[in-house]
Design a protein around this nucleic acid. Structure first.
Length: 431
RNA sequence: GGAGAGUUGGCCGAGUGGUUGAUGGCACCGGUCUUGAAAACCGGCAUACCUUGACGGGUAUCGGGGGUUCGAAUCCCUCACUCUCCGCCA
């Protein structure tokens, strides 16, 4: 959420940035200016009446103490008590409508973000390694997975449905090895603190990070009594960022760097027919997430660091990748700047997103009310939040299987991962 | 699931329905004293919103919501959370 005062004072800037995102400012902002003026007028009207009521009430106390008649004042407050709720209701309605507009405004892209309409105008900022060379036609992971007996879609469909997978044997172990490998790297070498959050969260948390109210269709909802349904987390970003909701952090503690390995649940509504093969797009996948809480002045430096931490996982695993700066038209709703890391998948001959690292500036912090107290200042301010995948474990699994496949159908385990898997190679599983 | 106790400002902790945004202490900030520091003493110290050129003024907030009353931190209802005991359970 943007700051109301900022939007009011910089309406033309907001309109321009919305246009850069490919949105129609008029459609997003609607009658912001009128509503804003009406809201303030309504508040003033309510407060004037409340002030009158309070004054009359004070006089009642004085008169009664003095043993005098206070019936005039009592009548006045009684009347006001009936009138105030109507005005209050009107003011609240305006407040709600204005807030809805404010909540529907996406974050403003940072000045360093390339302007563009779609993913085709994203800008490649780095490329690491080289695609592996094969003297045979490399296969996609769904073929390899089934041949090796480590991926099972049929039984997954039986027990859960489409877009689920069962991992068997070394396939399951590879997933666990990758998670441990990533967590160890981030906690031992990059200074992150590991957390294990709940996988079900309340609506307030989903609002804090921006999934609600706009993107309810992408989420799995779990009934839990009236009005207090829970939601399966679509990413660890939700519970981890909300850890500090409604809190004021000590400036000396910043930046706070957290990492969490969790499952992620996405309904993938509207993605029918897209990425139907393999485990690229699943209702449940696991991810190691990196989250930072930063002072505003170094959040962009922290974004570079966080991105490099995610890239280092791929480097240690010897996987070819490129890093893209997303353009204004391709960025997520809450982000001010995003880098996508895309890993090379030889079985499919394409780069595929494996991590998305974003600086949300104060957009989430304002929504979730996460503040810090700058040194020497008495007033607390909103801090900046960042996060990125470090990495999506399922897609890393895919990258390992496709990039390290051998002519005989087996898959080599990269050296850095061998201690975690306890094997050098995945051989076809005996029936 | 059953029974009981609680939720007050950054923290601890008072609070008889009527200048209580709220006593006091700690923490924090400024000052006096000191070579410096500590101690002591003095002063300051909530948040959001509305309003004003500014000084200032106003409104709301004592877990959330609702009610009683001329007036609620204080009385009533309700919900959430925390703690204790019982039951059940990985």
């Amino acid at each position: 959420m943007l700051d109301l005062n900022f939007v009011r004072d910089n309406l033309t800037v907001v309109e321009e940035k919305l246009r850069q995102r490919g949105m129609d400012p008029a459609a997003v902002l609607q009658d912001f200016r009128e509503l804003d003026a009406q809201r303030r007028q309504a508040i003033a009207a309510v407060e004037t009446m409340q002030a009158r009521r309070n004054r009359a009430s004070e006089e009642v106390a004085k008169l009664k103490k003095a043993g005098q008649d206070a019936s005039t004042q009592i009548t006045e407050t009684k009347e006001l008590r009936e009138q105030i709720p109507q005005k209050e209701k009107a003011a609240q309605e305006l407040e709600t409508r204005l807030r809805q507009i404010l909540l529907s405004i996406p974050n403003l892209p940072h000045e360093s973000v390339p302007v563009g309409r779609s993913s085709e105008e994203n800008v490649e900022v780095r490329r690491w390694g080289a695609p592996p060379q094969f003297d045979f036609a490399p296969k996609p992971h769904w073929d390899l997975g089934e041949q090796l007996g480590i991926l099972d879609f049929e039984r997954a469909a039986k027990i859960s449905g489409a877009r689920f997978a069962v991992y068997w044997d070394l396939g399951a172990k590879l997933e666990r090895a990758l998670a441990n490998f990533m967590l160890d790297l981030h906690t031992r070498e990059h200074g992150y603190t590991e957390v294990l959050p709940p996988y079900l969260v309340n609506s307030d948390s989903m609002q804090g990070t921006g999934q609600l109210p706009k993107f309810a269709a992408d989420l799995f909802r779990v009934p839990h009594g009236e009005e207090k349904d829970l939601w399966l987390i679509p990413t660890a970003e939700v519970p981890v960022t909300n850890l500090y909701r409604d809190e004021v952090l000590d400036a000396a503690r910043l930046p706070v760097s957290l990492t969490a390995y969790t499952p992620c649940f996405r309904s993938e509504a509207g993605s029918y027919g897209k990425d139907v093969r393999g485990i690229i797009r699943q209702h449940q996948f696991q991810k190691v997430e990196l989250v930072k809480f930063s002072r505003p002045e170094d959040s962009y430096q922290q974004l570079e660091k966080l991105t490099s931490h995610a890239e280092e996982v791929l480097q240690k695993l010897g996987l070819h990748y490129r890093t893209m700066a997303l353009c204004t038209g391709d960025m997520g709703f809450s982000s001010a700047k995003t880098y996508d890391i895309e890993v090379w998948l030889p079985g499919q001959q394409l780069f595929r997103e494996i991590s998305s690292c974003s600086n949300f500036e104060s957009f989430q912090a304002r929504r979730a009310n996460i503040r810090y107290r700058p040194e020497g200042k008495s007033k607390s301010e909103f801090l900046h939040t960042l996060n990125g995948s470090g990495l999506a474990v399922g897609r890393t699994w895919v990258a390992i299987v496709e990039n390290y496949q051998q002519a005989d159908g087996s898959v080599m385990i990269p050296p850095a991962l061998q201690p975690y898997v306890g094997a050098e190679r995945i051989q076809p599983r005996k029936p």
